Simulated scan of single mutants.
Amino acid sequence: MNLQMILEYLNRLKENNNREWYHEHKPEYEAAAGEFLKLVEALMMELGKEEPGILRHEPKKLTYKLVRDTRFSKDKSPYNPAFRVHLSEGGKQPVPAGYYLMLTPGGSFLGGGLFADIFKEETGMMRDYIAAHGEEWEAVIRDESFSSLFEVKGTALKNVPAGYDREHPQAQYLKNKSWYVEYPLADEALADADRFISETVEVCRIIKPFNEFINKALAGSPFLRQS
């Protein structure tokens, strides 16, 4: 498995972000995408040992296209020079929470949690669950292995929303509209594929209780009713 090939291709795409170059170098894309798919398959096999629901999905259907939607963006470059995948029991949909991996030169990371802040029902469910299970939330985010790597991120309101106690011990997190964590991955880490897979799987194990808390909070989500 040649993960360096992925970064090499993405670096060239970043420097030549136009449709002409992309189509002229389609074989290079296919080779890099093939290596990324091998990585996805390897991660699925390892994560599936503890979370078998991940194995329900075809690896290729969990990845994202390079093409960007430029309709509402000032940046009109047609491609996002990044290979991305979301691994969860629900596949690519944001619920249930899973593991999001993005490989891009100088900005690769592994993440978990609820990234999107546009789902009002899920936002309310998450706030309600944190408010009712504050000690459990604290146990997850203050766990030594978790807190040594992560700080919970997410877009947030300036104030605690109406209907919630402003003095609640978890008031800081009740302001949030999304709750996620990110683990940066250096370009050099991709030099050794086996080591990269091992490290990624270990970080996923640390993220897992965080995802599990979120998934309990979102147990009644419309995304799950549709699946």
Score class of each variant (00 low, 15 high):
M44D: 00
V67N: 12
E212H: 08
K74L: 12
G111E: 07
W137A: 03
A156D: 08
D69E: 04
K177F: 13
N11L: 05
K158F: 10
R68H: 06
E167V: 06
L47C: 03
L185P: 13
R166L: 07
L157T: 01
P59W: 04
M45C: 01
I141A: 03
K208E: 07
A116W: 06
I197S: 05
L55H: 03
R12Q: 08
F119N: 15
A116C: 02
E202H: 10
K208F: 02
P52Y: 07
W137N: 05
L62G: 01
E46H: 13
G48W: 04
Y29C: 06
A132P: 00
L47N: 04
P27Y: 03
G124Y: 05
A33C: 02
A42P: 05
D187Y: 14
R12I: 03
S77C: 02
F196K: 06
L37C: 04
D75H: 01
L149W: 09
I6Y: 05
K153R: 14
E89C: 04
A191I: 07
M1L: 13
E138F: 14
I118N: 14
P222D: 06
L190H: 09
G34S: 12
L3F: 13
P52C: 07
R12F: 01
V40L: 11
F36W: 08
K208L: 07
G112K: 11
A139E: 13
V67A: 10
R195H: 05
P184D: 13
Q4P: 00
E136L: 15
G113N: 11
L174I: 14
L114V: 08
R166H: 14
S198N: 06
I214Q: 01
D128H: 11
L43H: 01
L101C: 14
G90Q: 02
R56D: 10
P27L: 12
P161M: 12
H86Q: 11
M102I: 14
F150T: 12
P78C: 02
F83R: 12
K74T: 07
F36S: 09
G107I: 09
P105C: 12
I207Y: 08
M125Q: 13
R12Y: 03
E151A: 06
E8F: 02
N211R: 04
T200Y: 01
A32S: 04
E46I: 04
K177V: 11
L103C: 14
E8K: 11
L157V: 00
I207H: 10
G113T: 04
E144P: 00
V85N: 11
K153D: 09
Y180F: 15
K153H: 02
E151W: 00
N2L: 00
H23E: 15
